[in-house]
Nucleic acid binder design. Sequence first.
DNA 1: ATGCCATCCACCGGATGA
Length: 263
Amino acid sequence: MPLKVVTYNVNGIKARLPRVLEYLAEAQPDIVCLQELKASDETFPIAEIEAAGYGATWHGQKSWNGVAVLARGIQPAERQRGLSGEPEDEHSRYLECAITDPGGDELIVASLYLPNGNPRPGPKFDYKLRWIERLAARARALLAEEVPAVLAGDYNVIANDDDSYSTRAMAEDALMQPESRAGYRSLLAQGWTDALRTRYPGGGVWTFWDYQAGAWQRDAGFRIDHLLLSPMAADRLVDAGVDKAYRGREKASDHAPTWVALR
DNA sequence: ATGCCATCCACCGGATGA
């Protein structure tokens, strides 16, 4: 059985817990990276997640941000919390773990929540661009380790025109700016593989649909949740996709779980 | 140009999101 590695921006773990537990039970993913917990370390629902059969490591924050790594039957071992380069940055947006299976095989998995960057121009957009550079520095160090690694998360970057239902609607948005795209491309240029892009080179695959203006009903979405694979992980890629149906459920997140299957 | 909706916290409106 291939390994299913998922990234899922839950938009509030407390509000979304029934959906998350349902997803774990139904999809039986091996590894899940969560973003936008919107919960402090103390209020993360670890008891419920453990009861579902998952070990977890999390980096919470009250009200905003927050990321976690879950693994079925395994306790993810924390490697790094946050990105270096900006000590005053208090946002919980990066958590890197090592997941070792009973056979001794190790996979490095990071859950990341890249800043949105709106409104633009302004300090939030500047922060986004600095954060991408800090991520790129960490990504380069990971590649140098020559290990199987997955950088999974909400990148808040629409990388290509065909990754959005409407380039016109998003033209002024921070998610689609040339600087945002250049930052994302710099990761690919290092040697990371955009797994969904490999599987669906023609685009037209969405991972996010806004709550507003009937975006889900109109299928007006875009692709911003990405799984980047190191060369050793990319060699093991067998499939990738979006569990789109979860976006249509009661009290759904505005993102759908997005996944890769690795040999 | 704005609201459209949903989350959080903290008190029923404001900040944030994408």
